[in-house]
Design a protein around this nucleic acid. Structure first.
Lengths: 216, 216
DNA sequence: CCTTAAGTAGGTACTTGTACCTATTTACAA
DNA sequence: TTGTAAATAGGTACAAGTACCTACTTAAGG
């Protein structure tokens, strides 16, 4: 039995590096690669794989959005998030989305192998640094479920738009990209701004960067 | 004859991935790894290697500083920069430091292999996307040697404006802030955009953040 | 079954930004 | 001294963003 994985990371070198590491294991095989979130989702639509290894910061469609869609396409699809940062917001969102694997890029390469085997068996695998403060948060908030709070909650679609806006696309381009009417894109944008109490594009971008919705 | 390389990158997974890719080549061998700039310099002090592959963004001591020191320790040490961004300022600095290899992380993995072989023979190797605009700049500045002058040089005033723009001020507010006419602010803004080849506010903000002119 | 939230699409009015111009003053270098 | 770059200020035209509306469809929940 071979575990089939899909790699999604915008950096080809990282992707091929990971692929090289993984291919040293007999029981794991990379069956496809994606260089952005949208490609990863498209792969999920067309073919089946056991594990999707998804980088969190990707253009067009970020890793968390992509993961969410991938798991919706087939609830049996499993996702492992690859991330540079031990950002609480990311981890919270990932866990509340039902993602069971979260590996930091500065951890050892064999962690990803461990993560693949664990998640394949439907177990959790978090990099040690992360699990430490997940447990800490659990203790601190005694029973309050992670991801329950959210002061400001953008919808999935709104986050998607915000990312594109922050990546420098105009409203027209965003609309084209998402196959929606310009008016719809504007409506979403307006809702985002209202929810966040923001009145300028500049602040939208800064917000998106601060929240890790996109990166520089 | 085996080319000995040292890998310096703060992400272990990237490092091991690269290592896996490189080890498929018979004539190249990874003899040491470093997880920050200081470690790379320490390795350069103790042992000799042909090529140092250095990630530009590393904690403690960044890639460019580290490279500078590595080449000072032994002028025969050669450096290849690994970078996520095709950032002009970084490339400019790298080239003016005498670095001959500059590879983007989103390029194919075999580019790093090509880069190693080229730089080992004392040739230049830049990722295509970079060499494109290095050559363009060369043509634009007709014969002026690269690294002699700033490729993009904003004036003090322009930087001042750019910071305010990136901090979310409108042109009107910028003008008020600097006690100049709106028209003047617009003129400066236009000059900045022309110099940088940028056409959108969003990109202006992203540029300022990337260059550290302002922070999130 | 009804309500609500989300996503979609459209209208109108106004503000801001972008891309072209010209032109003056100052300061510094050839 | 002449030339050049930088900072200043202005004009015009069009593109894009911001702020309000209304309204339909669909999916989820009470």
């Amino acid at each position: 039995m071979v575990i089939e994985v899909v790699l999604a990371d915008d950096h080809a070198i990282v992707r091929q590096g990971l692929s090289a590491v993984i291919s040293q294991e007999q029981d794991i095989k990379v069956i496809a690669e994606a260089s952005n979130g949208k490609e990863a989702v498209d792969i999920a639509k067309k073919s089946s794989a056991d594990i999707f290894i998804v980088d969190i910061t990707m253009p067009i469609l970020n890793g968390l959005e992509a993961s969410s869609q991938i798991m919706q396409i087939n609830p049996r699809n499993k996702v492992i998030i690859l991330s540079m940062h031990d950002n609480r917001a990311f981890i919270e969102r990932a866990l509340s989305l039902g993602i069971k694997g979260y590996v930091l890029k500065d951890s050892a390469a064999d962690e990803i192998i461990q993560a693949i085997r664990a998640v394949y068996k439907d177990e959790y695998f978090l990099s040690p640094r992360i699990s430490t403060f997940v447990i800490q948060d659990y203790i601190d908030s005694k029973g309050q479920k992670i991801g329950e709070k959210k002061i400001v909650s953008l919808t999935e679609r709104e986050r998607e738009l915000l990312q594109l806006i922050a990546e420098g696309y105009t409203n027209k381009e965003v609309a084209t990209h998402l196959n929606i009417c310009l008016k719809t894109a504007l409506a979403h944008r307006n809702n985002i701004m209202q929810k966040l109490g923001i009145h300028r594009q500049a602040d939208l971008i800064r917000y998106a960067l601060k929240e890790g919705i996109t990166t520089i």
